[in-house]
Design a binder for these strands. Sequence first.
DNA 1: TAGTAGTATTATGTATAACATAATGCTAAC
DNA 2: GTTAGCATTATGTTATACATAATACTACTA
Lengths: 234, 234
Amino acid sequence: MESTTVNTFIQMDTSSLVDKVEANLVQLLVDRKLKIGDVIPTEIDLSKNLGVSRTVTREALLRLRMRGLIETKKKKGSVITSPDIFSIIGKSLDPHLLDQETLKEIFEMRLVLEIGMADFLFQNITAEHIKELKEIVKNEPDTSEDYVFHIDHEITFHGKLYEITGNQTLKKFQKLLLPVFDYVHNSGLLKKPATIKKFVSHKGLVDILENGSPELFRNAMRNHLENHFLRIFS
Amino acid sequence: MESTTVNTFIQMDTSSLVDKVEANLVQLLVDRKLKIGDVIPTEIDLSKNLGVSRTVTREALLRLRMRGLIETKKKKGSVITSPDIFSIIGKSLDPHLLDQETLKEIFEMRLVLEIGMADFLFQNITAEHIKELKEIVKNEPDTSEDYVFHIDHEITFHGKLYEITGNQTLKKFQKLLLPVFDYVHNSGLLKKPATIKKFVSHKGLVDILENGSPELFRNAMRNHLENHFLRIFS
DNA sequence: TAGTAGTATTATGTATAACATAATGCTAAC
DNA sequence: GTTAGCATTATGTTATACATAATACTACTA
Protein backbone atom coordinates (compact mmCIF):
# COMPACT_ATOMS: atom_id res chain seq x y z
CA MET A 1 0.00 0.00 0.00
CA GLU A 2 1.25 3.48 -0.82
CA SER A 3 0.69 6.56 1.25
CA THR A 4 -2.93 7.69 1.33
CA THR A 5 -2.07 11.12 0.04
CA VAL A 6 -0.62 9.71 -3.12
CA ASN A 7 -3.63 7.49 -3.60
CA THR A 8 -5.92 10.50 -3.82
CA PHE A 9 -4.39 11.43 -7.16
CA ILE A 10 -6.45 10.52 -10.16
CA GLN A 11 -4.71 8.62 -12.92
CA MET A 12 -4.61 10.77 -16.01
CA ASP A 13 -6.04 9.38 -19.19
CA THR A 14 -2.98 9.44 -21.42
CA SER A 15 -4.50 7.38 -24.24
CA SER A 16 -4.55 8.88 -27.70
CA LEU A 17 -7.61 9.52 -29.78
CA VAL A 18 -6.87 6.47 -31.88
CA ASP A 19 -6.75 4.38 -28.72
CA LYS A 20 -10.19 5.57 -27.76
CA VAL A 21 -11.72 5.00 -31.16
CA GLU A 22 -10.21 1.53 -31.27
CA ALA A 23 -11.58 0.65 -27.85
CA ASN A 24 -14.90 2.10 -28.89
CA LEU A 25 -15.15 -0.10 -31.95
CA VAL A 26 -14.01 -3.23 -30.11
CA GLN A 27 -16.65 -2.56 -27.49
CA LEU A 28 -19.24 -2.54 -30.24
CA LEU A 29 -18.09 -5.98 -31.33
CA VAL A 30 -18.05 -7.34 -27.80
CA ASP A 31 -21.54 -6.11 -27.15
CA ARG A 32 -22.59 -8.03 -30.21
CA LYS A 33 -24.10 -4.91 -31.62
CA LEU A 34 -22.09 -6.01 -34.62
CA LYS A 35 -21.96 -9.67 -35.58
CA ILE A 36 -19.70 -11.66 -37.85
CA GLY A 37 -20.38 -10.93 -41.48
CA ASP A 38 -21.82 -7.51 -40.82
CA VAL A 39 -20.35 -4.69 -42.81
CA ILE A 40 -19.28 -1.66 -40.83
CA PRO A 41 -19.82 1.89 -42.14
CA THR A 42 -17.34 3.59 -44.40
CA GLU A 43 -14.39 5.46 -43.00
CA ILE A 44 -16.07 8.75 -43.75
CA ASP A 45 -19.34 7.80 -42.07
CA LEU A 46 -17.49 6.51 -39.02
CA SER A 47 -15.44 9.67 -38.85
CA LYS A 48 -18.56 11.81 -38.95
CA ASN A 49 -20.36 9.78 -36.32
CA LEU A 50 -17.36 9.61 -34.03
CA GLY A 51 -16.44 13.23 -34.56
CA VAL A 52 -12.83 12.56 -35.51
CA SER A 53 -10.79 12.91 -38.63
CA ARG A 54 -10.61 10.21 -41.25
CA THR A 55 -6.95 9.65 -40.42
CA VAL A 56 -7.76 8.62 -36.87
CA THR A 57 -10.55 6.36 -38.02
CA ARG A 58 -8.24 4.76 -40.54
CA GLU A 59 -5.57 4.06 -37.92
CA ALA A 60 -8.12 2.49 -35.60
CA LEU A 61 -9.47 0.33 -38.43
CA LEU A 62 -5.94 -0.67 -39.33
CA ARG A 63 -5.45 -1.91 -35.78
CA LEU A 64 -8.64 -3.93 -35.88
CA ARG A 65 -7.51 -5.39 -39.16
CA MET A 66 -4.18 -6.40 -37.65
CA ARG A 67 -6.05 -8.02 -34.79
CA GLY A 68 -8.00 -10.05 -37.29
CA LEU A 69 -11.30 -8.55 -36.28
CA ILE A 70 -12.18 -7.11 -39.65
CA GLU A 71 -11.29 -7.53 -43.27
CA THR A 72 -11.16 -4.59 -45.61
CA LYS A 73 -12.10 -4.67 -49.27
CA LYS A 74 -11.95 -1.75 -51.58
CA LYS A 75 -15.26 -0.16 -52.35
CA LYS A 76 -17.30 -2.55 -50.14
CA GLY A 77 -15.81 -1.30 -46.88
CA SER A 78 -14.93 -3.55 -43.96
CA VAL A 79 -16.67 -6.68 -42.72
CA ILE A 80 -16.48 -8.29 -39.31
CA THR A 81 -14.57 -11.57 -39.30
CA SER A 82 -14.03 -14.27 -36.73
CA PRO A 83 -10.57 -13.69 -35.35
CA ASP A 84 -8.12 -16.54 -35.67
CA ILE A 85 -5.52 -15.49 -33.15
CA PHE A 86 -2.95 -17.98 -34.19
CA SER A 87 -2.86 -17.13 -37.84
CA ILE A 88 -2.59 -13.48 -36.88
CA ILE A 89 0.31 -14.13 -34.58
CA GLY A 90 1.87 -16.32 -37.21
CA LYS A 91 2.00 -13.43 -39.61
CA SER A 92 3.96 -11.32 -37.21
CA LEU A 93 6.14 -14.01 -35.69
CA ASP A 94 9.52 -13.85 -37.30
CA PRO A 95 12.01 -16.34 -35.83
CA HIS A 96 14.88 -14.20 -37.04
CA LEU A 97 13.85 -11.58 -34.56
CA LEU A 98 13.79 -13.85 -31.51
CA ASP A 99 16.80 -14.20 -29.28
CA GLN A 100 18.43 -17.56 -28.61
CA GLU A 101 17.06 -17.87 -25.11
CA THR A 102 13.49 -17.53 -26.33
CA LEU A 103 14.08 -20.01 -29.13
CA LYS A 104 15.34 -22.49 -26.58
CA GLU A 105 12.35 -21.93 -24.37
CA ILE A 106 9.96 -22.44 -27.24
CA PHE A 107 11.62 -25.77 -27.90
CA GLU A 108 11.15 -26.64 -24.25
CA MET A 109 7.55 -25.67 -24.53
CA ARG A 110 7.10 -28.05 -27.39
CA LEU A 111 8.55 -30.78 -25.24
CA VAL A 112 6.08 -29.96 -22.50
CA LEU A 113 3.18 -30.03 -24.92
CA GLU A 114 4.02 -33.29 -26.59
CA ILE A 115 4.58 -35.04 -23.29
CA GLY A 116 1.40 -33.63 -21.85
CA MET A 117 -0.61 -34.68 -24.87
CA ALA A 118 -0.30 -38.37 -24.06
CA ASP A 119 -3.62 -38.78 -22.30
CA PHE A 120 -5.49 -37.02 -25.08
CA LEU A 121 -3.77 -39.13 -27.67
CA PHE A 122 -4.74 -42.42 -26.09
CA GLN A 123 -8.22 -41.12 -25.51
CA ASN A 124 -8.83 -40.17 -29.14
CA ILE A 125 -6.73 -42.51 -31.20
CA THR A 126 -8.41 -44.92 -33.64
CA ALA A 127 -7.24 -47.85 -35.71
CA GLU A 128 -7.36 -45.55 -38.70
CA HIS A 129 -4.93 -43.16 -37.04
CA ILE A 130 -2.50 -45.95 -36.28
CA LYS A 131 -2.64 -46.97 -39.90
CA GLU A 132 -1.85 -43.47 -41.05
CA LEU A 133 1.04 -43.14 -38.64
CA LYS A 134 2.50 -46.43 -39.79
CA GLU A 135 2.30 -45.19 -43.35
CA ILE A 136 4.23 -42.06 -42.38
CA VAL A 137 7.06 -43.89 -40.64
CA LYS A 138 7.23 -46.73 -43.15
CA ASN A 139 10.41 -45.64 -44.89
CA GLU A 140 12.23 -44.63 -41.79
CA PRO A 141 15.44 -46.42 -40.78
CA ASP A 142 15.03 -48.73 -37.83
CA THR A 143 17.89 -47.65 -35.63
CA SER A 144 19.12 -44.30 -34.53
CA GLU A 145 22.59 -44.66 -36.05
CA ASP A 146 23.39 -42.00 -38.57
CA TYR A 147 19.75 -41.12 -38.66
CA VAL A 148 19.38 -37.78 -40.34
CA PHE A 149 16.49 -35.64 -39.24
CA HIS A 150 14.47 -34.54 -42.18
CA ILE A 151 12.54 -31.53 -41.11
CA ASP A 152 9.63 -32.24 -43.44
CA HIS A 153 9.29 -35.76 -42.16
CA GLU A 154 9.47 -34.49 -38.61
CA ILE A 155 6.67 -32.06 -39.26
CA THR A 156 4.46 -34.64 -40.91
CA PHE A 157 4.82 -37.10 -38.06
CA HIS A 158 4.49 -34.77 -35.11
CA GLY A 159 1.82 -32.76 -36.87
CA LYS A 160 -0.21 -35.93 -37.16
CA LEU A 161 0.04 -36.42 -33.41
CA TYR A 162 -1.31 -32.93 -32.73
CA GLU A 163 -4.10 -33.67 -35.16
CA ILE A 164 -5.07 -36.86 -33.35
CA THR A 165 -5.64 -34.99 -30.11
CA GLY A 166 -8.66 -33.48 -31.82
CA ASN A 167 -7.82 -30.12 -30.32
CA GLN A 168 -7.84 -27.57 -33.13
CA THR A 169 -6.31 -24.86 -30.99
CA LEU A 170 -3.40 -27.09 -30.11
CA LYS A 171 -2.89 -27.95 -33.74
CA LYS A 172 -2.94 -24.29 -34.71
CA PHE A 173 -0.44 -23.56 -32.01
CA GLN A 174 1.90 -26.14 -33.41
CA LYS A 175 1.49 -24.70 -36.88
CA LEU A 176 2.30 -21.34 -35.43
CA LEU A 177 5.59 -22.54 -34.00
CA LEU A 178 6.64 -24.48 -37.08
CA PRO A 179 8.61 -21.60 -38.59
CA VAL A 180 10.54 -21.40 -35.37
CA PHE A 181 11.51 -25.07 -35.51
CA ASP A 182 12.28 -24.77 -39.17
CA TYR A 183 14.50 -21.80 -38.50
CA VAL A 184 16.40 -23.53 -35.75
CA HIS A 185 16.98 -26.57 -37.93
CA ASN A 186 18.26 -24.51 -40.82
CA SER A 187 20.38 -21.94 -39.10
CA GLY A 188 23.38 -23.69 -37.67
CA LEU A 189 22.06 -23.51 -34.14
CA LEU A 190 21.96 -27.28 -34.06
CA LYS A 191 25.13 -29.01 -32.97
CA LYS A 192 26.24 -32.50 -33.86
CA PRO A 193 23.67 -35.15 -32.98
CA ALA A 194 23.90 -36.02 -29.35
CA THR A 195 24.30 -39.69 -28.77
CA ILE A 196 21.72 -41.04 -26.41
CA LYS A 197 22.11 -44.64 -25.39
CA LYS A 198 18.60 -45.76 -26.18
CA PHE A 199 17.01 -43.52 -28.75
CA VAL A 200 13.28 -43.90 -29.33
CA SER A 201 12.36 -43.53 -32.98
CA HIS A 202 9.06 -42.52 -34.53
CA LYS A 203 8.38 -46.18 -35.14
CA GLY A 204 8.90 -46.81 -31.46
CA LEU A 205 6.39 -44.11 -30.59
CA VAL A 206 3.78 -45.56 -32.93
CA ASP A 207 4.33 -48.97 -31.43
CA ILE A 208 3.68 -47.61 -27.97
CA LEU A 209 0.59 -45.78 -29.15
CA GLU A 210 -0.74 -49.09 -30.43
CA ASN A 211 0.18 -51.36 -27.58
CA GLY A 212 1.44 -49.29 -24.69
CA SER A 213 0.13 -46.81 -22.14
CA PRO A 214 0.20 -43.04 -21.65
CA GLU A 215 2.94 -43.51 -19.06
CA LEU A 216 5.16 -45.39 -21.45
CA PHE A 217 4.44 -42.91 -24.19
CA ARG A 218 5.45 -39.94 -22.07
CA ASN A 219 8.82 -41.42 -21.24
CA ALA A 220 9.38 -42.45 -24.82
CA MET A 221 8.47 -39.01 -26.13
CA ARG A 222 10.76 -37.36 -23.64
CA ASN A 223 13.60 -39.54 -24.78
CA HIS A 224 12.76 -38.92 -28.41
CA LEU A 225 12.60 -35.14 -28.15
CA GLU A 226 15.56 -34.78 -25.86
CA ASN A 227 17.63 -36.00 -28.72
CA HIS A 228 16.55 -32.93 -30.66
CA PHE A 229 16.79 -30.76 -27.67
CA LEU A 230 20.32 -31.58 -26.70
CA ARG A 231 21.44 -30.54 -30.14
CA ILE A 232 20.55 -26.90 -29.58
CA PHE A 233 22.64 -25.95 -26.61
CA SER A 234 25.95 -27.60 -25.98
CA MET B 1 0.65 -29.00 -61.74
CA GLU B 2 -1.34 -26.54 -63.82
CA SER B 3 -1.19 -26.14 -67.56
CA THR B 4 2.10 -24.73 -68.80
CA THR B 5 0.37 -21.92 -70.58
CA VAL B 6 -1.14 -20.66 -67.38
CA ASN B 7 2.19 -20.94 -65.61
CA THR B 8 3.75 -18.45 -67.97
CA PHE B 9 1.63 -15.70 -66.48
CA ILE B 10 3.46 -13.53 -64.00
CA GLN B 11 1.83 -13.04 -60.63
CA MET B 12 0.87 -9.43 -60.24
CA ASP B 13 2.22 -7.61 -57.24
CA THR B 14 -0.99 -6.52 -55.56
CA SER B 15 0.61 -5.34 -52.33
CA SER B 16 0.04 -1.76 -51.30
CA LEU B 17 2.70 0.82 -50.74
CA VAL B 18 2.33 0.44 -47.00
CA ASP B 19 2.92 -3.30 -47.36
CA LYS B 20 6.15 -2.64 -49.18
CA VAL B 21 7.41 -0.08 -46.72
CA GLU B 22 6.59 -2.39 -43.83
CA ALA B 23 8.43 -5.31 -45.43
CA ASN B 24 11.30 -2.99 -46.18
CA LEU B 25 11.66 -1.92 -42.57
CA VAL B 26 11.30 -5.45 -41.20
CA GLN B 27 14.00 -6.59 -43.59
CA LEU B 28 16.26 -3.93 -42.10
CA LEU B 29 15.68 -5.40 -38.66
CA VAL B 30 16.27 -8.96 -39.82
CA ASP B 31 19.48 -8.01 -41.55
CA ARG B 32 20.60 -6.52 -38.25
CA LYS B 33 21.18 -3.21 -39.94
CA LEU B 34 19.11 -1.98 -37.04
CA LYS B 35 19.66 -3.46 -33.62
CA ILE B 36 17.70 -3.39 -30.40
CA GLY B 37 17.93 -0.01 -28.75
CA ASP B 38 18.70 1.85 -31.95
CA VAL B 39 16.53 4.82 -32.72
CA ILE B 40 15.09 4.91 -36.20
CA PRO B 41 14.84 8.14 -38.20
CA THR B 42 11.88 10.45 -37.84
CA GLU B 43 8.77 9.90 -39.89
CA ILE B 44 9.70 12.80 -42.10
CA ASP B 45 13.23 11.57 -42.72
CA LEU B 46 11.98 8.08 -43.47
CA SER B 47 9.39 9.45 -45.85
CA LYS B 48 12.02 11.43 -47.72
CA ASN B 49 14.44 8.53 -47.95
CA LEU B 50 11.78 6.04 -48.99
CA GLY B 51 10.14 8.44 -51.37
CA VAL B 52 6.64 8.06 -49.95
CA SER B 53 4.27 10.31 -48.09
CA ARG B 54 4.31 10.64 -44.34
CA THR B 55 0.90 8.98 -44.25
CA VAL B 56 2.30 5.75 -45.65
CA THR B 57 5.31 5.83 -43.38
CA ARG B 58 3.08 6.36 -40.37
CA GLU B 59 0.89 3.38 -41.23
CA ALA B 60 3.92 1.16 -41.70
CA LEU B 61 5.37 2.30 -38.36
CA LEU B 62 2.02 1.69 -36.71
CA ARG B 63 2.12 -1.88 -37.93
CA LEU B 64 5.62 -2.41 -36.59
CA ARG B 65 4.46 -0.99 -33.29
CA MET B 66 1.58 -3.44 -33.17
CA ARG B 67 4.01 -6.25 -33.88
CA GLY B 68 6.04 -5.12 -30.91
CA LEU B 69 9.08 -4.36 -33.01
CA ILE B 70 9.31 -0.71 -32.11
CA GLU B 71 8.17 1.63 -29.39
CA THR B 72 7.26 5.19 -30.17
CA LYS B 73 7.82 8.13 -27.89
CA LYS B 74 6.90 11.66 -28.67
CA LYS B 75 9.78 13.86 -29.64
CA LYS B 76 12.41 11.11 -29.38
CA GLY B 77 11.05 9.10 -32.29
CA SER B 78 10.90 5.31 -32.38
CA VAL B 79 13.32 2.80 -30.94
CA ILE B 80 13.78 -0.85 -31.79
CA THR B 81 12.58 -3.17 -29.07
CA SER B 82 12.84 -6.90 -28.52
CA PRO B 83 9.47 -8.27 -29.51
CA ASP B 84 7.60 -10.09 -26.77
CA ILE B 85 5.17 -12.19 -28.75
CA PHE B 86 3.02 -13.08 -25.84
CA SER B 87 2.36 -9.61 -24.59
CA ILE B 88 1.46 -8.68 -28.15
CA ILE B 89 -0.97 -11.54 -28.42
CA GLY B 90 -2.32 -10.68 -25.01
CA LYS B 91 -3.28 -7.23 -26.15
CA SER B 92 -5.32 -8.61 -28.99
CA LEU B 93 -6.74 -11.62 -27.21
CA ASP B 94 -10.20 -10.78 -25.99
CA PRO B 95 -12.00 -13.77 -24.43
CA HIS B 96 -15.32 -12.16 -25.20
CA LEU B 97 -14.59 -12.59 -28.86
CA LEU B 98 -13.77 -16.30 -28.69
CA ASP B 99 -16.38 -18.94 -29.27
CA GLN B 100 -17.15 -21.63 -26.69
CA GLU B 101 -15.35 -24.38 -28.57
CA THR B 102 -12.11 -22.40 -28.60
CA LEU B 103 -12.46 -21.57 -24.92
CA LYS B 104 -12.84 -25.26 -24.18
CA GLU B 105 -9.79 -26.09 -26.25
CA ILE B 106 -7.70 -23.50 -24.48
CA PHE B 107 -8.64 -25.10 -21.19
CA GLU B 108 -7.59 -28.44 -22.61
CA MET B 109 -4.33 -26.89 -23.64
CA ARG B 110 -3.72 -25.73 -20.13
CA LEU B 111 -4.27 -29.27 -18.95
CA VAL B 112 -1.74 -30.54 -21.47
CA LEU B 113 0.80 -27.96 -20.36
CA GLU B 114 0.50 -28.52 -16.67
CA ILE B 115 0.72 -32.27 -17.04
CA GLY B 116 3.67 -31.99 -19.39
CA MET B 117 5.49 -29.65 -17.03
CA ALA B 118 6.08 -32.36 -14.45
CA ASP B 119 9.59 -33.27 -15.49
CA PHE B 120 10.72 -29.68 -15.57
CA LEU B 121 9.20 -29.06 -12.18
CA PHE B 122 11.04 -31.89 -10.51
CA GLN B 123 14.21 -30.92 -12.30
CA ASN B 124 14.16 -27.31 -11.08
CA ILE B 125 12.39 -27.35 -7.76
CA THR B 126 14.24 -26.29 -4.62
CA ALA B 127 13.53 -26.42 -0.90
CA GLU B 128 12.78 -22.72 -1.10
CA HIS B 129 10.09 -23.32 -3.72
CA ILE B 130 8.45 -25.98 -1.59
CA LYS B 131 8.38 -23.55 1.28
CA GLU B 132 6.72 -20.90 -0.83
CA LEU B 133 4.14 -23.33 -2.15
CA LYS B 134 3.31 -24.47 1.37
CA GLU B 135 2.80 -20.87 2.35
CA ILE B 136 0.37 -20.39 -0.52
CA VAL B 137 -1.78 -23.42 0.30
CA LYS B 138 -1.61 -22.94 4.07
CA ASN B 139 -5.13 -21.63 4.53
CA GLU B 140 -6.75 -24.01 2.16
CA PRO B 141 -9.37 -26.51 3.44
CA ASP B 142 -8.12 -30.06 3.60
CA THR B 143 -10.86 -31.91 1.82
CA SER B 144 -12.66 -31.23 -1.40
CA GLU B 145 -16.13 -30.93 0.13
CA ASP B 146 -17.81 -27.65 -0.57
CA TYR B 147 -14.48 -26.33 -1.61
CA VAL B 148 -15.00 -23.10 -3.45
CA PHE B 149 -12.53 -22.21 -6.11
CA HIS B 150 -11.19 -18.78 -5.57
CA ILE B 151 -9.84 -17.61 -8.86
CA ASP B 152 -7.13 -15.45 -7.29
CA HIS B 153 -5.89 -18.31 -5.19
CA GLU B 154 -5.91 -20.56 -8.22
CA ILE B 155 -3.81 -18.12 -10.16
CA THR B 156 -1.30 -17.68 -7.37
CA PHE B 157 -0.79 -21.39 -6.94
CA HIS B 158 -0.63 -22.47 -10.55
CA GLY B 159 1.32 -19.37 -11.51
CA LYS B 160 3.96 -20.40 -9.00
CA LEU B 161 4.25 -23.77 -10.70
CA TYR B 162 4.88 -22.15 -14.07
CA GLU B 163 7.46 -19.97 -12.43
CA ILE B 164 9.29 -22.94 -10.96
CA THR B 165 9.82 -24.46 -14.39
CA GLY B 166 12.23 -21.59 -15.00
CA ASN B 167 10.87 -21.20 -18.50
CA GLN B 168 9.99 -17.55 -19.00
CA THR B 169 8.16 -18.20 -22.23
CA LEU B 170 5.95 -20.75 -20.56
CA LYS B 171 5.22 -18.35 -17.75
CA LYS B 172 4.33 -15.62 -20.19
CA PHE B 173 2.06 -17.98 -22.02
CA GLN B 174 0.19 -18.71 -18.83
CA LYS B 175 -0.12 -15.02 -18.13
CA LEU B 176 -1.49 -14.65 -21.60
CA LEU B 177 -4.21 -17.16 -21.02
CA LEU B 178 -5.19 -15.88 -17.60
CA PRO B 179 -7.88 -13.53 -18.90
CA VAL B 180 -9.43 -16.49 -20.64
CA PHE B 181 -9.61 -18.51 -17.44
CA ASP B 182 -10.85 -15.53 -15.55
CA TYR B 183 -13.55 -14.96 -18.13
CA VAL B 184 -14.70 -18.56 -18.02
CA HIS B 185 -14.86 -18.53 -14.25
CA ASN B 186 -16.89 -15.33 -14.17
CA SER B 187 -19.28 -15.84 -16.99
CA GLY B 188 -21.66 -18.60 -16.01
CA LEU B 189 -20.01 -21.10 -18.31
CA LEU B 190 -19.10 -23.16 -15.29
CA LYS B 191 -21.66 -25.68 -14.12
CA LYS B 192 -22.07 -27.03 -10.62
CA PRO B 193 -18.90 -28.58 -9.28
CA ALA B 194 -18.49 -32.09 -10.60
CA THR B 195 -18.01 -34.62 -7.85
CA ILE B 196 -14.94 -36.69 -8.38
CA LYS B 197 -14.39 -39.53 -5.99
CA LYS B 198 -10.85 -38.75 -5.05
CA PHE B 199 -10.08 -35.08 -5.59
CA VAL B 200 -6.47 -34.00 -5.38
CA SER B 201 -6.10 -30.62 -3.71
CA HIS B 202 -3.29 -28.09 -4.05
CA LYS B 203 -1.93 -29.42 -0.80
CA GLY B 204 -1.86 -32.87 -2.32
CA LEU B 205 0.10 -31.58 -5.28
CA VAL B 206 2.68 -29.88 -3.09
CA ASP B 207 3.07 -33.06 -1.10
CA ILE B 208 3.81 -35.00 -4.25
CA LEU B 209 6.27 -32.38 -5.42
CA GLU B 210 8.11 -32.81 -2.14
CA ASN B 211 8.05 -36.57 -1.80
CA GLY B 212 6.70 -38.08 -5.01
CA SER B 213 7.74 -38.54 -8.63
CA PRO B 214 6.91 -36.94 -11.96
CA GLU B 215 4.63 -39.87 -12.77
CA LEU B 216 2.65 -39.43 -9.60
CA PHE B 217 2.48 -35.70 -10.14
CA ARG B 218 1.10 -36.05 -13.65
CA ASN B 219 -1.74 -38.26 -12.52
CA ALA B 220 -2.48 -36.03 -9.59
CA MET B 221 -2.50 -32.91 -11.75
CA ARG B 222 -4.79 -34.57 -14.24
CA ASN B 223 -7.20 -35.43 -11.50
CA HIS B 224 -6.95 -31.97 -10.03
CA LEU B 225 -7.59 -30.11 -13.27
CA GLU B 226 -10.28 -32.43 -14.52
CA ASN B 227 -12.36 -31.20 -11.66
CA HIS B 228 -12.22 -27.74 -13.20
CA PHE B 229 -12.57 -29.08 -16.63
CA LEU B 230 -15.69 -31.10 -16.08
CA ARG B 231 -17.42 -27.99 -14.86
CA ILE B 232 -17.26 -26.33 -18.22
CA PHE B 233 -19.09 -28.71 -20.45
CA SER B 234 -21.92 -30.80 -19.02
C1' DT C 1 -33.41 -9.71 -76.14
C1' DA C 2 -28.94 -10.89 -74.52
C1' DG C 3 -24.49 -9.79 -73.98
C1' DT C 4 -20.78 -6.75 -73.67
C1' DA C 5 -18.13 -2.32 -73.83
C1' DG C 6 -17.84 1.66 -71.78
C1' DT C 7 -18.97 5.00 -68.18
C1' DA C 8 -20.28 6.58 -63.58
C1' DT C 9 -20.00 5.91 -58.87
C1' DT C 10 -18.03 4.95 -54.58
C1' DA C 11 -14.87 3.83 -50.87
C1' DT C 12 -10.27 2.89 -49.94
C1' DG C 13 -5.27 4.24 -50.92
C1' DT C 14 -1.92 8.02 -51.17
C1' DA C 15 -0.12 12.75 -51.01
C1' DT C 16 0.35 17.33 -49.06
C1' DA C 17 0.01 21.05 -45.91
C1' DA C 18 -1.04 22.96 -41.65
C1' DC C 19 -1.68 23.16 -36.81
C1' DA C 20 -1.87 20.89 -31.87
C1' DT C 21 0.53 18.75 -28.31
C1' DA C 22 3.96 16.81 -25.42
C1' DA C 23 8.71 15.98 -24.34
C1' DT C 24 13.16 17.74 -24.24
C1' DG C 25 16.79 21.10 -24.04
C1' DC C 26 18.23 25.78 -23.44
C1' DT C 27 18.39 30.25 -21.33
C1' DA C 28 18.03 33.71 -18.18
C1' DA C 29 16.47 35.53 -13.89
C1' DC C 30 16.58 35.10 -9.01
C1' DG D 1 22.66 26.50 -8.56
C1' DT D 2 18.01 26.05 -9.01
C1' DT D 3 13.96 26.81 -11.48
C1' DA D 4 10.50 29.30 -14.44
C1' DG D 5 9.72 30.08 -18.87
C1' DC D 6 10.67 29.82 -23.73
C1' DA D 7 12.30 27.47 -28.01
C1' DT D 8 12.64 23.40 -30.43
C1' DT D 9 11.36 19.14 -32.34
C1' DA D 10 8.86 15.00 -33.60
C1' DT D 11 4.64 12.79 -33.10
C1' DG D 12 -0.60 13.39 -33.00
C1' DT D 13 -4.51 15.24 -35.46
C1' DT D 14 -7.18 17.66 -38.93
C1' DA D 15 -8.44 18.95 -43.57
C1' DT D 16 -8.37 18.59 -48.48
C1' DA D 17 -7.46 16.78 -52.86
C1' DC D 18 -6.49 13.34 -56.06
C1' DA D 19 -5.43 8.18 -57.52
C1' DT D 20 -7.06 3.69 -57.92
C1' DA D 21 -9.77 -0.39 -57.95
C1' DA D 22 -14.16 -2.59 -57.48
C1' DT D 23 -18.83 -2.43 -58.37
C1' DA D 24 -23.13 -0.81 -60.51
C1' DC D 25 -25.24 1.11 -64.27
C1' DT D 26 -26.13 2.38 -69.01
C1' DA D 27 -26.42 2.14 -73.67
C1' DC D 28 -25.05 0.19 -77.79
C1' DT D 29 -24.65 -3.67 -80.90
C1' DA D 30 -25.54 -8.26 -82.83
